[in-house]
Nucleic acid binder design. Sequence first.
DNA 1: TTTTGAGTTGTTCGA
DNA 2: GTCGAACAACTCAAA
Length: 482
Amino acid sequence: MPQKPTIVWFRDDLRLSDNPALAAAADAGAPTVCLYIFEDGTPHLRDHGGASRWWLAQSLKALDASLRARGHRLVLRSGRAEAVIPAVVTEVGAAKVVWNRRYDAGGIAVDTAVKALLKDEGVEATSFPGNLLREPWQVKSASGDPLRVFSPFWRAHQRLDAIEAPLRAPQMMAQPAIAIDSEALDSWSLEPNRPNWAAEFPDEWTPGEAGAQAALSAFMEAGLDGYADGRDRPDRPSTSRLSPHLRFGEISPRQIWHAVQMAAGMDGGRDVAKFLAELGWREFSYHLLFHWPDLADANFQNRFDAFPWREDKTLLAAWQKGRTGYPIVDAGMRQLWRTGWMHNRVRMVAASFLVKHLRIDWRAGERWFWDTLVDADPASNPASWQWVAGSGADAAPYFRIFNPMLQGAKFDPRGDYVRRWIPELADLPAEVIHAPWEASRQVLERAGVRLGETYPRPVVDHDTARGEALSALAEIRGPAHA
DNA sequence: TTTTGAGTTGTTCGA
DNA sequence: GTCGAACAACTCAAA
């Protein structure tokens, strides 16, 4: 009598190494069925955005290829997990289902319901921690409460037990005896066509576990040294670009943590500490999402419920298309559209511009990023938008309004980043490239720039917009009301 | 128990 | 030119 199979339910953990659910299944020696469910359309779950759908398609192909190299395959199904899981359990006669946890309210609700359904059927269901360094509820203040400020959170996080070493990919996984139907990936229409706006994505990215490991190695070779300062420079390749790999769990934070610690020796150093703190921000975002489940919908500070946001479709569209007339903002928005990613420093400037200069609700920006970022993350995206808006935990001071010209001059001093993404400004000298409207007529003419024709004039005046933002913020000043 | 100081990412103004 | 102060309100931990 062969052992009954175990179903490994893959979600945002599309990797074989350091995958606790997969390792547990393999160690138990039962035949392993590797399953992915496309759950879009499930109520209270957030559907993938467009760029995420592209990445997901590539990542599923990569995972399937790795499994096939081991004589396995990835079984694809779509629909609601509460229906799909019991159906597959019946089809294969599984005795057990395992998965790695997720932390958004909708996902938790689905997983809890699935677990209950399986229990009723006498099928074992076990979830594992695999996608964070620590479970969100493990980090607490001295009084046992969740933390709302990053620094105390990160200190408390680091005071806990050492981070365990990552798990190896399973050597052996027994095959199920029967063939299992799989849907065709193409039938999900994850990849765009007419137009194929992702045409340039493959030049930028290698989704999948091998691509993630390669990105980590490349970063440790070239980017980690000098990271503390270099990470602010969008004109340089000095960030890890691991975010989409982490988003889909092609690499675990624990693998990154250990690789970087190993490379740095025990004492670390400023660059390593700064980089690991970025993992800390991801942990903090999940901590917030777990304890405040409506993070993507509701102002963390409810006094912002009274903020006089502007509904202006024209301005929102100008921002989305990279046509605000502020080069650093537009370069970022165009990088986002073309590559599915934007440098972190520019994200802050572009987000601040939408929220403060245009006074458009941060949720509109959050949704745009959700749709266009390959790393669109259910925790980091809303947490960071709220941080920029000033409505979030650990709020930025309300008076912190990024000046796009100063930010450009400081972090893209030669203008190379702007030139790369806004070719119509490529011939402008560095002195005026972050404020073309201040250039003389001759300089503009020599560079072939006609403001209002080849490149927009600023959609708002910085000083005016700043003043208006400050008075709008003054309106909602004062203690938060319960 | 109360107090104190610091808190990812900034800008402007006036001396 | 440089430099420090000012720009809220609140959380958290150390003293």
